[in-house]
Design a protein around this nucleic acid. Structure first.
Lengths: 96, 96
DNA sequence: AGCTTGTATCGATGTCTGTCGATGCATCCT
DNA sequence: AGGATGCATCGACAGACATCGATACAAGCT
């Protein structure tokens, strides 16, 4: 595994290295229909609204989720491609 | 996924959220025989020896690797159980 | 147009993290 | 015993991060 690949993968793992973001991703990915409104995510945590928005932004920048505004609300969904890459690394490490 | 479980998993993902640690784990896990001497890991990076030692300690504390001293040298190996748990989370997120 | 609600951005702050040089400890060799 | 080598720990420091309140932006409603 070369250095630049490690930088890229590590950035995605780092995005998962926070309990709040992990729960956010879990809530988003496990949702029937694949989409969750931010208005459902924010009250699930004991944190201020800007903090949740910040974590969602980091998940987006890591390529783990994407979002779209529809009227008043913003909906998030998971991007399986990035999750697959991370799982692939772990699988390779286990089966080595 | 409850909060305490998220804290635990996030700690392991956080340990993977650094390019140096990711490469270290990759080097350790992909090694034939499953064991690598620190003296082979350190020169692979452009970093001071205490820095590598620090990263190995974090990987150890995250339950991703373990080590043993044999004479002058210290050998590291990967712990598949923790890797499996992380892969399990990702698999669940992808197949949701 | 103005008000209300949902979400993102900004700026500040305290804490955590990666890195290093210096040092300590363990083991081997002579 | 003394010296050399491999690795870990310590203390320090610069940069990054999580969190918040204040504010801005977007869309719907009256």
């Amino acid at each position: 595994m070369d250095a630049s690949q490690a930088v890229e993968l590590a950035a995605a793992f780092k995005a998962l290295g926070d309990p709040v973001r992990l729960r956010l991703l879990s809530m988003i990915a496990s949702r029937e229909g694949g989409e969750v409104c931010v208005c459902e995510l924010t009250p699930a945590f004991d944190l201020a609204q800007p903090t949740i928005s910040h974590h969602l932004k980091l998940l987006r920048q890591a390529g783990l989720v994407d979002c779209e505004r529809r009227g008043t609300w913003v909906y998030y969904w998971a991007l399986p491609a990035t999750l697959d890459r991370l799982a692939g690394f772990l699988r390779a490490a286990v089966n080595a």
